[in-house]
Design a protein around this nucleic acid. Structure first.
Lengths: 349, 349
DNA sequence: GCTTGCACCTAAATCGATTTAGCTTTTCTC
DNA sequence: GAGAAAAGCTAAATCGATTTAGGTGCAAGC
């Protein structure tokens, strides 16, 4: 064991102890230098220099977990909250969640209770690889959002052993907050039908989350029920206006009679606007457009975009409430909270 | 000391040890239950229940730092990187930084080297209150952005003892990446002047970062030099289009002859569009508008917004490179990296 | 009666860094 | 030259949780 330890030592992370050995002093001396307190603790300048040299040479990287543990004041309890989202998703819901969560946290912080809130990203579909998720060594509580079906499957298979609220997805073993299933698509369809639109299409990105899929499904179902015919499906590469524009432009070529577009996100609707202008069709006279999400700038689109969707601040408020209830164990059972969509009637439909 | 310890114990965070004492078992047993491994380790079901009960009653919150330290594989070095930004600022630069940083990190990760990247927010002007900043117990490296002058003053006064890259600000004791001072405002002025605009205004938010202040200054200086007259200053409450619209509308009332607007962020330009439409003035025929930042949707504004500004991907690339150089100690001296602005000539000016 | 095996639990080491109290050795003072 | 003070450093405890190796007592088997 001793020999193996030596053998492996080559590539091991450098510790204070190793530096100390290398220089021929105690770990205490090294630590003193690292904290820049050698003056007050009266280390000889020559020693300080030798230690500094070694620190540089060996490429020392402090272990923050160890430092945190040590630095931590035993009088205050510290809770780590994370907002977990995928890189690929837009950040606007996240930033709202963050703001509200921070506010909730500021209210609850005191001399004996502090919180930290961070945003942590995972690659879509690879949530399971996030370090510290499973062994609960990273968070005391987490909000998980923008998951793909693979991530959902992972979550379903293991109940994370701390407070978790999942957004936009129904999972039996977690507390979930999401828009009322079916409603968004339904309302969008109603708007279109009330305007007498016949040749409808729904624009979705390639990667569908549960929410975006549900919106498209419900829209199609409602249209089918009312008119007997199925809306066209337009698939954009991702969430960006650019990909939306490309997809819609192609669709308009194939289906010039199209007179109503439902975009499952506002960014795609923005792309649709662009494509429509390019081929000289007016919104909403020629083509009605409905978006989802209430993009913070939707009112400033040209024309202002009519949106259907849950009030995100409500969604976030529910999430935050649930999270704190879970953490204080006031509610332990998994729950589903639905937030009904509202319609922001503007100009585009 | 013993008595005081007892006295304080009331309100102390609950530890595994305390639970163990409360139940009358060893910490090992409690830990076993917390990890849900009581089956394989053959704890009596009754004991498990008693422990669970106590965990609930006492409101146990695990100390993640301790868990991390313990869970940590001594073969791999783990580096914690943070992107620190203020709540009040828009996230779009942050999200780009995050994506590029994550990519860099993915490339450098290996079996013996892992990274985690998080976004951490501070209240504008209160960076100093962020826990773990000063005692280096949170990050091995950090990108700091969207600071206010108070934050800058704080940073100037203490050199953080780890790898730090500051964005958008010149601080002698740090590595900084920012747009070339003076250039953005100058270019914006040139565009306006080349179009023969005379009655110019610059729109800024109330809270000015160094960059936004510099843009406005340089714009005014360039205009003053060329024409001898000073552009008007329009102050919006914050960065939102909404506040921009309000401010511009007011300005137009006071200065109906205004024919050129320079907005120090794209979101403010979007608000300006709105205000201009409302009073029936055409862009760019009546009023030219120039924005900064190259908003990811600037091309989809109506009309597409002409932007001046650094290529953000360049900025971020420089930041990431510097950060890794600092961490591997390939470059230790503070540096300033300037990224020259480019002009995205679209329709609005 | 003695071993074996099982059920159930604990002592102690460990993760890495920091700090406090204290130990040598040298230098200074009278 | 004795005692005090200063300089320069270290041993060991600590932060909180986890795990490994091992102990104890009881029932079963021969």
């Amino acid at each position: 064991m001793h020999i193996r330890a030596m053998a492996r030592a080559e590539n091991r992370p450098v510790t204070v102890h190793m530096i100390a050995e290398h220089v021929g002093v105690s770990p205490a001396a090294v630590s003193t230098v690292l904290a820049n307190r050698h003056e007050e603790r009266r280390l000889a300048p020559a020693t300080v220099e030798r230690i500094r040299q070694a620190v540089r040479e060996l490429g020392y990287v402090p272990n923050v977990a160890a430092r945190r543990l040590r630095a931590h004041d035993p009088e205050v309890r510290h809770m780590e909250l994370g907002i977990l989202t995928s890189f690929e998703a837009p950040l606007f819901l996240v930033s709202r969640a963050l703001r509200q969560l921070q506010q909730a946290v500021d209210e609850r912080s005191g001399p004996d209770r502090r919180f930290s809130v961070t945003i942590d990203m995972f690659h879509a579909g690879r949530l399971r690889e996030m370090p510290g998720l499973l062994n609960a060594s990273r968070f005391n509580g987490a909000i998980i959002t923008n998951t793909l079906p693979q991530d959902d499957a992972f979550l379903k298979s293991t109940t994370l052993p701390y407070a978790v609220v999942v957004q936009g997805r129904r999972l039996a073993n977690y507390c979930c907050v999401l828009e009322t299933p079916g409603e968004v698509g339904q309302r969008a369809a109603e708007i279109m039908l009330a305007r007498g639109r016949k040749n409808l299409a729904v624009i979705t990105p390639t990667l569908l989350t549960e929410s975006t899929a549900d919106r498209a499904e419900a829209f199609c179902a409602a249209v089918r029920t009312a008119t007997g015919s199925e809306p066209a499906r337009v698939t954009a590469e991702d969430f960006t206006p650019c990909s939306g524009a490309t997809a819609v432009q192609e669709h308009l070529r194939a289906q010039p009679k199209c007179d109503g577009l439902f975009a499952v996100t506002d960014t795609l609707a923005l792309g649709a606007f662009h494509a429509l202008k390019k081929v000289g069709r007016r919104v909403p006279e020629d083509v009605a457009v409905v978006g989802v999400g209430d993009h913070e700038h939707a009112d400033f689109f040209e024309p202002p975009l009519t949106c259907v969707g849950p009030v995100y601040d409500r969604v976030v408020a529910e999430i935050v409430t649930l999270l704190f209830n879970l953490m204080s164990r006031r509610r332990v059972r998994p729950t589903e909270v639905f937030v009904a969509p509202i319609i922001a009637r503007r100009v585009s439909a």
